[in-house]
Design a protein around this nucleic acid. Structure first.
Length: 569
RNA sequence: GCCCCGGUCGUCUAGCCCGGUCAAGGAUAUCGGCCUCUCGAGCCGAAGAUCCCGGGUUCAAAUCCCGGCCGGGGCACCA
């Protein structure tokens, strides 16, 4: 045994010394020894002493003899390969207990379309339920506020579309405004068991009780009284604001907002009708109540949501406790700030109202529809979300990162086209007989996609203004000498290797007679840049939605005739 | 102010739960080279991290414990 350890120590001491300029470190060698011979941990102190001796010996040797001894005894120790890591999120706690039947949900308020911020919970919840576990993914519309965050009738469908595009199809769908009776029933049970009560104090009075950490006088009334009040709430005898149903928690809870939080309130739906149910209901559950009840009723096992919901989890646990239900596992992830993109719902909405943004898919915005219009692929959003993962700390991700992921997917798909941006130069061609024919490569990585033929008779082309050399290569057409300050191009040959050898700039061009005018729209912070120019004739045939690369310019998505939206470099 | 939660290359992240194969791996951005009919892609290389700071436990701490600092979230009859 002793001998074995000494040998192992010698091996790692040598390897360590060779790796770090002749001096091995005791700590590192000890670690390696334990890794190779885990049993040795039991006699850790002795091993350390032994390693110290060995390291001393090794360090007194010359680097050359260390290396030669190592390669003689353990040649394999010289190759330092590393483990490869697989990109995958950590498993979910509590997934075993449910036998891998993980049920998650995505629960948006249908008051707006989805944006990059909402993509995170959508993808994460979908990923765990459907990709990592063999479970169920639920879509639930949380539209229980007809007053402050009024649902937008179109939003239900817009969100469904957004999710389908994102690649997170759902197994079941629920709309909270259609489930009011469910919430009423649980409310009644809680009142009867003395765990909820109707309070008729004003908002200010309730706040005062909370701040003081004192119980609400209403809470001392018997359940029968509260049942009566509850009936009166439902029958419309209390005007808006006159009564609320509160959940008993702890009047002195360290977090004042948890103290007997409000589960239902009266809303005047004649004044502010709900887009789906009109004025049918006047008593509305709050987010925390509806959410708690639904998560249980729908069998949700895991809730993944942002850290802004941390206190809500705390509140909702009281409903579970009172009802004797088992709460789902909650995981809170941190904020994801996307630098250089407008994400906030309220800012977007205000911007659209003020005319700052044209619409919900204005290319400067971070809505999923805007990203799609810009040519961002859902796969790229997935990569971004999965990379950021479920860490609780705030992540400041850059648009560059999103673009890098997107480029990975877009690059092979996007065929190459030529587009000459303004200011373009017109040059006449000498030395080629009309009709002139060029063959441009459709995609350099995929020769099987072939070449595109451009034929024209009038010997004039548009050139990008950055052509300043005495010779230039026009892609697919030939090498030229630049004469008369760039107004003339004299044909030399069509040999790519000539261009390489003489280091000619290789540029895009467009025939003047059949070029297609176009403009590229580019989101630049709060502005939209417009780059107009001339494209090769086949641009006219590209269908809207097609994503291509404008050579030497960047990737674009075809918006419509003559309009292209810049995706990224 | 009160209540939570965090802190690893510029940025994002792996490792942390269960201390040792980590003098810290990957990605992105940057810089160089090769390759390419693009300023795209690919390949190779460089540089980049006092693992927030201080203390403690231990043979051994990015990992466990305590304190500090800094950052974030919440404090609605919104979701």
């Amino acid at each position: 045994m002793e001998v074995d350890i000494r040998r192992v120590a010698l091996k790692h001491a040598l390897a360590n010394a060779v790796k770090f300029g002749g001096k091995a470190r005791v700590d590192s060698v000890v670690s390696k020894v334990f890794a190779e011979v885990p049993e040795a941990r039991k006699a850790a102190k002795e091993v350390v002493e032994l390693v110290k001796e060995v390291v001393e010996e090794v360090n007194s040797m010359s680097p050359e003899s260390q290396a030669s001894l190592l390669s003689e005894l353990w040649p394999e120790a010289l190759s330092g390969e590393r483990k490869v890591e697989v990109k995958r999120l950590p498993p979910l706690p509590g997934a075993e207990e449910v036998g891998g039947k993980v049920v998650t949900r995505f629960a948006p308020n249908p008051d707006f379309v989805l944006h990059l911020g909402s993509a995170r919970p959508a993808i994460l919840n979908y990923y765990y339920a459907k990709k990592m576990y063999n479970g169920k993914f639920i879509l639930r519309f949380e539209d229980t506020d007809p007053r402050t965050k009024r649902p937008m009738p179109e939003a239900y469908d817009l969100i469904r579309e957004d999710l389908r595009w994102l690649g997170t199809p759902w197994d079941e769908e629920y709309i909270q405004s259609q489930r009011m009776e469910v919430y009423y029933e649980v409310a009644e049970a809680l009142i009867k068991s003395g765990n909820a009560y109707v309070c008729t104090h004003s908002q200010d009075e309730i706040k005062a009780f909370r701040d003081a950490g004192k119980p609400d006088p209403c809470s001392f009334l018997p359940p029968e009284e509260h049942m009566e009040r509850w009936e009166k709430m439902l029958s419309g005898e209390y005007p808006e604001g006159a009564a609320v149903l509160r959940i008993k928690t702890d009047p002195a809870h360290p977090n004042p907002s948890v103290r007997d939080w409000i589960a239902f309130r009266v809303l005047d739906t004649e004044k502010t009708p709900h887009p789906l149910t009109g004025d049918k209901y006047r008593v509305w559950p709050t987010y925390n109540f509806a959410c708690a009840v639904d998560d249980h009723m729908l069998g949700v096992t895991h809730v993944l949501r942002g850290e802004e919901h941390a206190v809500n989890t705390l509140k909702q646990e009281y409903v579970y406790r009172h009802m004797g239900w088992k709460p789902p596992v909650s995981i809170h992830f941190g904020r994801m700030n996307l630098e250089g993109m407008v994400l906030s719902k309220s800012v977007i909405r205000r911007g659209i109202e003020k005319g700052l943004f044209s619409s919900i898919d204005d290319i400067r915005l971070g809505t999923l529809r805007a990203l799609r219009r810009r040519g961002i692929l859902p796969e790229a959003i997935w990569d971004l979300v999965l990379e950021v993962g479920i860490k609780p700390s705030t992540a400041r991700v850059s648009v560059d990162k999103l673009h890098a992921f997107n480029r990975k997917y877009l690059e092979p798909r996007a065929n190459r086209y030529m587009f000459v941006p303004e200011p373009a130069k017109v040059a006449s061609i000498e030395g080629l007989e009309a009709p002139i024919t060029a063959e441009v490569i459709v995609h350099p990585s995929f020769p099987e996609r072939g070449r595109r033929r451009i034929t024209f008779s009038k010997p004039e082309v548009y050139l990008p203004s950055d052509v300043a050399s005495s010779m230039v290569r026009l892609m697919g057409l030939g090498n030229f000498e630049v004469v008369d300050g760039g107004s003339k191009l004299r044909y030399l040959n069509n040999d790519v290797s000539f261009a390489k050898k003489h280091e000619l700039p290789i540029v895009q061009w467009a025939p003047v007679e059949s070029s297609v005018r176009g403009r590229v729209l580019k989101a630049a912070g709060t502005k939209i840049e417009e780059i107009s120019g001339y494209g090769e004739p086949s641009l006219a045939e590209l269908p809207p939605g097609e994503q291509v690369q404008f050579v030497r310019l960047g990737f674009v998505r075809v918006e419509g005739p003559e309009t292209y939206i810049f995706t990224h470099d």
